[in-house]
């Protein structure tokens, strides 16, 4: 087990390295990016204190050095000083912008995952056991629609309906009066009143996907010999289900930790923008509108790394529940 985990962690290192290269490329990509523009403007003005300013920037990002040195400088700043660079759009360090927002993004992603599991698990089992029943067709159709409707369109429809039907403006994570207040119980309750909307909207997509996976695996497992053997033992139908096919069909749930995260980061970005949440997605958008790439690169790097960690966790959990993974023998099935 320990050696499995070590092996798995070692495999993560090149992955995160490649992500960081990709993030760096993104930062370097736009020809007319914010920093270049800014420096050009400063140079044109030709004032003395601007020269100092220019030198400070050039020094800071190693702009006079070759590319790989710039990369090294950038990555060492991040690794050792958690310095992700500067965002001109916000006039703050990237760390400041992201730190205050990534927490909400993660919270929404995690709770969406929980929502997804709690809803998809029983429905997935039920639908597989009652294959070809009305409930099966209903959820299959719902699943198709859930998969086809992206979160942000759903968010728009929800906002429209709640505004025109109930006069409620959905959006944000806090009511206006709490926005700038320090944390308090009342503020927390206010947060709960708002945060469930993005959680549900994001969760619906994942739920649709997971019900389909769950149904397929369950149907596969239900056909297996050991289910019949378990019935022949005299176990009640519920116990047969829970102790046998569900034990294996639960595996995709655990793997989902690996792919739900990128999914929520991905779909979540646009949903967050539509709902105007104080999360990382809208910050990314605003930065990108001004081709302010440091924030974008950092976002890719951070979310990519989080995803890598997520899939590490789900692989470890998978090894815990599935001995075949642990013993490195999957040929049995």
């Amino acid at each position: 087990m320990a050696s499995y985990i070590v092996k798995r962690i070692i495999r993560m290192i090149p992955q995160v390295f490649l992500i960081s290269i990709l993030a760096f490329i993104i930062i370097q990509l736009p020809p007319g990016d914010y920093l270049t523009e800014h420096l050009n403007r400063l140079r044109q003005s030709g004032r003395q204190q601007d020269e100092v300013e220019i030198r400070r920037w050039v020094q800071m990002y190693g702009l006079d050095r070759p590319m790989y040195e710039q990369y090294l400088k950038w990555i060492t700043n991040i690794v050792f000083r958690l310095d992700f660079g500067y965002t001109f759009q916000w006039n703050k360090s990237v760390r400041e912008v992201i730190a205050s927002r990534m927490g909400y993004t993660l919270a929404i992603a995690l709770f969406s995952a929980v929502f997804t599991w709690v809803v998809a698990l029983p429905i997935g089992i039920f639908v597989a056991v009652k294959q070809y029943s009305i409930a099966d067709y209903f959820f299959t159709l719902l699943g198709f629609i859930g998969l086809a409707v992206p979160g942000f369109l759903l968010a728009m429809v929800v906002m429209y309906v709640s505004y025109t039907q109930f006069g409620v403006k959905v959006g944000g994570l806090f009511s206006v009066e709490y926005q700038l207040q320090p944390w308090s119980w009342a503020k927390f309750v206010d947060l709960l009143g708002h945060i469930w909307i993005p959680i549900v909207i994001l969760g619906i997509n994942g739920t649709a996907g997971l019900i389909r996976t769950m149904r397929a695996t369950m149907l596969d497992e239900l056909r297996k010999q050991y289910v019949l053997v378990a019935r022949a033992k005299g176990l009640s139908e519920l116990k047969v289900l829970l102790r046998y096919p569900v034990r294996i069909a639960i595996n995709p749930f655990i793997s989902t930790i690996g792919w739900l995260l990128p999914w929520f980061f991905s779909g979540g970005t646009v949903v967050e923008i539509v709902l105007n949440l104080p999360t990382a997605g809208p910050a990314l958008w605003r930065a990108l509108m001004g081709q302010d790439m440091y924030l974008a690169g950092s976002y890719i790097l951070i979310s990519g790394t989080l995803v890598a960690i997520g899939s590490l966790i789900s692989d470890i959990l998978l090894a815990v529940v599935d001995p075949r993974v642990r013993f490195g023998s999957l040929e049995g099935q």
Binding site: Q15, I19, L22, I26, L29, P30, P31, G32, D33, G258, P262, W263, F265, S266, G267, T269, V270, G281, L284, W285, L288, M289, Q291, M293, A296, G297, Y299, I300, S303, G304, V307, A308, S311
Partner: peptide, 16 residues
């Protein structure tokens, strides 16, 4: 493993 839409956004935003 990368979140698709943020990556697309970043690349698209870099277009001149």
């Amino acid at each position: 493993s990368l979140p698709t839409i943020p990556l697309w956004m970043s690349l698209a935003a870099a277009l001149p």
